[in-house]
Every structure is written in structure tokens, then in C-alpha cells.
Design a protein around this nucleic acid. Structure first.
Lengths: 380, 380
DNA sequence: TTGAAAGCGCTAACAG
DNA sequence: CTGTTAGCGCTTTCAA
């Protein structure tokens, strides 16, 4: 296997020895230059770089990984969906990664996939990665049971507790309960006696967190906790839930676990003759790009995807590169709420129902809704 | 560097020799088993697999890549955005790839990034990939000029001509003009004299294709080609465009280059007192998940992301594995149109404008709009 | 059907 | 500051 088919052809990719020969130095020196090691004279460095340039040299990563034991890549496990949340998180991860010098490998885990997260992580391990990011995992068999997959590299889990066992497990982006609290409190402050919840699929931690935040907020204010309606994140499921909720005139405020469901919900309410926000207020979650432009513009809780990804990856990379050191501490992501036009004080009660403004909040008037483009500065 | 720190510790990952030893065969035989080569007796295969299982052996990919010269991974260049189109395409690529045995590496190219596509492709080349997918590239300096980057691996470009030079360049998903034609013709068939176009940013090929499809369709029907309004894909830009178009009462039909802009457009029209679809019909593009649930439910052109990705990757992998063979031929993606409630025949003209039903279509009545969930079967 | 030997191109110690 | 010497763990000849 004498490379290059005999004749001194220039077909194959140049190697560091070739560069070394041309520059008149040893191969190791070329390696030094490309690794930005010290102890290389400026003159030699220049010669090497020049030779490399001339030859069109580029380091062979496989060889590098083999020799060093580090692949310099990080794997991400995502749901195979273009849903705004997961997709935004993935983009956030990529963005955060590009400054770290690590490459990104991506594997999806489709819901209902027999192999699931475990299979996805396993395939990443097969490929060879120095760290793994698991984005928004959902429950599956053995998720936190005894047969949790054991992983030899640090793991960062976004928006959930870890479904795998690893030497170091970091988590980030698990502040959904606080955001749900903000949404719920906004509605209570408008004067609603209680708030209904259109939950996401409860196999998702993100959905459970939001539900939990809603529930505890109501409890903390001494309000009724109405039965939960569960959707599947889709506008279709929000629409279906909306038909149910529209029938119950006691419903004056709904917190939906994401914007898509909120949009479907609003459509169903509107079709049923219940006006939003006059009869029913709706708060969404995510702040999808169209949220400010649907009818009515949606009050919602923006998620700090980029911040979460950035912080999480910083900590993951730190752990990869300093295995012995203490992991960097997590910081709480900011909680935000964008008030638009889908929320308002409740209608005057014509029936003398059980409602008196028990612990009614002082600030019952709706904050002035921003113009339709509220929260979304028009680019260009 | 005698691995394993002296004592026969079991710390390091097992290698194929370890498996070979345990199974009582040569290392090469282990390699044969794991590569599914022929000429291994069933008995030996079983022993090897057992030994591997016991040791928890997994092949080292770096070594494999180094020895074979193939990385078994494919790189994708995407825009760093969670926009429905690009995100869906990325997921489609992942899905298509998982059956091929190739791993997926992802690099983003942010708009305005100085390095741009060229930089992204370059970083992929650095990482080592057997093929590259460029998803929805946008114009940039040197895009098709002389200084186009030369790439040594096959390239698949989705939804555009290639911005790089490579031994084999495949394209897929470039049928946007036909889809734009379907949208435009739908409006003409409803009886509109002409159709306005709310275009995407013209640096995107996808946007140009749609515009081209719209323009040629109008031309083919001998209609006026009104001036184009250009947006940036966002609902915000659609809203801004809508305020302009609302002022012109001659506008009775608009084809928006994506759903988000259509949604913003509809909001602006509605606010200006122009009802959709009674006064103005609007057609979107993409069929985003909420399209069926906005007000009014949006008539739009669904994009066949999965089909495009699947077909494109099949061809790319074919080329990677059969460099000498002819590339597989491309097939046209299906053209679809989902009619909902944002389109209707034009209002009766009260002013005797220049319009006579010149080549008026026979089928002027709107097809009965489907129920609100039209086009989107409710999951669960 | 199996095995032995020789690298793939680089990084990691250790000398100079 | 620079070079030498060994491998990293696999696939690829080639031989048995």
C-alpha cells in the first residue's frame, strides 16, 4: 500500500510530512505550528504556513483523533421535529459551539422510535464524541430506571433531568416552572379568579414543568386548580381542546403550554363565539415569530434558547477540558413575559357565580397592549 | 506510552485485539465480523460477537477513518435559523441519513457571516466528511464567480444552484417555481384579474424561484405583472408590506412567498379594514403547522421537505459510494396546494376599472373550504 | 475460511 | 527551539 499509485503523482491529499519536506523542517514542527504550540520561531512558523498554503494542506482529523484520543466533536440528541422550541435550541447549540472549536454531530430521536434516546446516545458514542448534549428528552422505558445507559463522556441535558448515567451530568434550561408562574400570575393580576391550563404532552419534562409552575402558582394564591386539558403541542390539539373549553363559560383565562396550541385554542374559542380577550384571555409559551401577528396578537412567554444553549455548552466544554475540576455552576435563565392583546381583565360576571374577587389583585386593569408588532422589531 | 498505566487494569476502552484474544481468533477476524465481510464461519462469528459483548467493545471510528480514508459522515450546511423551511429540511436530512449508515455533521452559516457558505464548507472539509449537503444557500460574494471554493467531495445542493465547485454536484428541491405557479393559478382561477406577490428576500434562490414562477404564470395568462413587494420571510415584514398593499384597492389577491409573511400580511389587511378573503385573497407557502388555525385558515402550498431530502441524499450517497458511476437522475417533487379559507373569488367591482374578465377561467367559484383542520389530521 | 504484516497521518513523550 | 521515536486501533494487502 505505497500511497499514490507508484509514480510520484500529486493525486492524494498532502500530509504533514510533505509540508515538512517543503519547508525544510521536521514533521513534528509542522504539527507544532498547526497546534499553536509555543517554541516555534516566527521564521520557521512562516515557512511552514507558506508551504502548507502552497500544498493546500489540511490536517487529517481522523489521525488526530486517533493519536490524541479526542475527537473534538460534541454530539447532540434532538427530537426529529421542526417544532419551534427544539429547533431553536438546536440552532442555539450550534451557534454556541462554533466559538469553542468543537464540531457538531446530530442525531434525532423520533418519538415512538424503539431505540429512543438510548439508541441515539449510543450511536453518538459509536461515532465518537467528547461530550453529549441531550435536548429536551421525553420519558421512555428505563429513562431513570436501573437500565439507564452508562455513558463515558460528560453529558449536558437541556430542560430535563438526565435520562442517562454519566461521570458528569450537567443540566440547563430547566426554569420552565418559573416562566409558567409568570404567565399564570399575569392572568391572576388581570383579575381572573383562576386560570385553566392547556398542557403539553406529559411525557415531556418541559410540559410537566410548565404544568407544575402553573399549579403551584394557583395554589400559592389560594385559587381553584381546574382540571388540566392535555394537548400534543400542535395547533390541531389546541383547537380540539378549545372546543371543550369553549363549552364551559366559567373559563375566563387559559395558559397554553406553547404558542401553537394557543393559536389553535383561540381559533376554536372564536368559532364558538367566545371572543379573545374579551370573554377569554389566553397566554401562550415560546413567543414564536408569528405570535405578534396572529389575531389577536398573543401574550406569551419567550424562551431564552440562545442563553440556555450558550451557558450549557460553556459548562460542558469546561468539564470536557477540565475533567478533574469542579463543574461550572449553573445560573438561572431570565424570566420574561410579552404582553400583547390576547389577555384582558375577565368579563363582568352576569351570573352571581361563586366568584367574589377573593384575593383580587390590586392591578386589575390590563396593561396597555403594545402595537401589533409588540416585542418584534421589524427587521429591515 | 504503553497503554493502561502498567498494571493490567481494565480502564481503557477495549480494542479489537482484546476481543480477538478473548474469542481465540486473530484481530483481522474480528474486523471481518464487524464489517459483515463474508468468509467467516458462523461459529467464529458467534464467538467474536460474544466476546465483544462481554468486553463492551465498540469500534474506534477515528482508526477506521484513518485506515480506510472514509469518514462515513456527511456534513450539512444550514442557515442558523429555526425558520420552518430550513429547519424542516435539516430534520428531513437527518431522517434520510439514518438509514444510510452515515453520521451527520452540521455547520451553520449565519446571514451576514463574513465567512459565509464558503467558510462553513471549509470547516466541514476540515472536520472530514465524505459528502456535503448545502441547504438553501443564499447569494454571497463569489457565489458563482471565479473564486468559488473547490471541494473534493460530492456535493448536494438543496433548492439552489451550487455555490461551490466539486467533482460531482447534485441538486434537488428546486421546483419552487412550479409550486408558485400552482398558487398563482389558483388565484387566477378564482377570477382575480391579477395577483400581487409578496416576495422573500431576493438573495435567496428560493425566493427568486417563487417570484419567477409567479411572474411567468401571470405572463402566460396575459395578465398584468404588478410591482413586487419584498419581505424578509418574517411576519413582521409581511405586516409592513400589508400596510402598503392595503392602501391600494386594486389589490384583490396576494401570493406570499411564505406563510409567516402571509400571516403578517393578513393582520395588516384586517386592521386596515380589508377583509380576507372577501376583499383580498391570500395564498401562503410552506404550510406551517399553524397555517390551518390562524384566522382565516390559510390557503398555502406545502413543501415536500422529506421527499426532497430523502431523494437528494439517496443520490448523494450513491455518488459517494460509486464515484465512477453516473449519478442517479433527479425526479420532480410533487406539487401540492392546500385550499383553506383565505382565498375566495374577488369582490364585485363597483368601479368600472380596466378589468374585464379577459381570459377568465371557467371555475370561478371557490372550492368549498375544508373544515378548520383541513390538511392537518389531528395527531392522537 | 483464516492470519500476519504493514501502514493510514497524526500526537506524545523524551532527547537534544 | 527542534527532532526522534513510538505508537493510537483499525483496514488493507498478501499469504496460507
Amino acid at each position: 500500500m505505497t500511497r499514490g499509485s507508484g509514480r510520484g503523482g500529486s493525486s492524494a491529499a498532502p500530509r504533514s510530512v510533505d509540508v515538512a519536506r517543503l519547508a525544510g523542517v521536521s514533521q513534528k514542527t509542522v504539527s507544532r505550528v498547526f497546534n499553536d504550540e509555543q517554541y516555534v520561531s516566527a521564521e520557521v512558523r512562516r515557512r511552514v504556513l507558506e508551504a502548507a498554503e502552497e500544498l493546500g494542506y489540511r490536517r487529517n482529523n481522523a489521525a488526530r483523533a486517533l493519536a490524541s484520543g479526542r475527537t473534538r466533536s460534541i454530539g447532540v440528541v434532538t427530537l426529529g421535529t421542526a417544532l419551534y422550541g427544539p429547533a431553536s435550541l438546536l440552532m442555539g447549540v450550534e451557534r454556541a459551539l462554533r466559538d469553542t472549536g468543537y464540531a457538531l454531530r446530530v442525531v434525532n430521536t423520533m418519538e415512538g422510535d424503539p431505540a429512543g434516546i438510548t439508541g441515539a446516545v449510543d450511536s453518538l458514542l459509536d461515532q465518537g464524541v467528547d461530550g453529549i448534549v441531550i435536548s429536551e428528552p421525553i420519558d421512555e422505558r428505563g429513562a431513570d430506571g436501573a437500565d439507564a445507559l452508562r455513558v463515558g463522556v460528560p453529558v449536558l441535558v437541556l430542560g430535563a433531568p438526565s435520562p442517562v448515567a454519566a461521570p458528569t451530568v450537567l443540566t440547563a434550561g430547566d426554569g420552565a416552572d418559573l416562566m409558567a408562574r409568570a404567565a399564570t400570575e399575569h392572568l391572576l393580576e388581570l383579575g381572573h379568579l383562576t386560570v385553566h391550563h392547556l398542557a403539553g404532552p406529559q411525557r415531556w419534562y418541559a410540559a410537566r414543568d410548565r404544568l407544575e409552575g402553573w399549579r403551584t402558582t394557583l395554589a400559592a394564591h389560594g385559587r381553584d386548580v381546574p382540571p388540566v386539558v392535555e394537548g400534543d403541542w400542535s395547533a390541531a390539539s389546541g383547537y380540539a381542546a378549545g372546543r371543550e373549553l369553549a363549552a364551559d363559560t366559567a373559563v375566563t383565562a387559559v395558559f397554553a403550554a406553547n404558542d401553537d396550541m394557543a393559536i389553535g385554542l383561540i381559533r376554536a374559542l372564536t368559532e364558538a363565539g367566545r371572543r379573545v380577550p374579551r370573554d377569554v384571555s389566553v397566554v401562550g409559551f415560546d413567543d414564536v415569530p408569528v405570535a405578534a401577528y396572529v389575531t389577536p396578537p398573543l401574550t406569551t412567554v419567550p424562551q431564552p434558547f440562545d442563553a440556555v444553549a450558550q451557558e450549557g455548552l460553556k459548562r460542558l466544554v469546561h468539564t470536557i477540558e477540565n475533567p478533574e475540576a469542579d463543574p461550572l455552576p449553573a445560573s438561572d435563565p431570565p424570566v420574561d413575559l410579552v404582553v400583547r392583546s390576547s389577555t384582558a381583565p375577565p368579563p363582568h360576571r352576569t351570573t352571581p357565580g361563586r366568584g367574589r374577587r377573593a384575593t383580587a389583585p390590586s392591578r386589575a386593569a390590563a396593561p396597555a397592549p403594545p402595537p401589533a408588532n409588540g416585542g418584534h422589531p421589524t427587521p429591515r
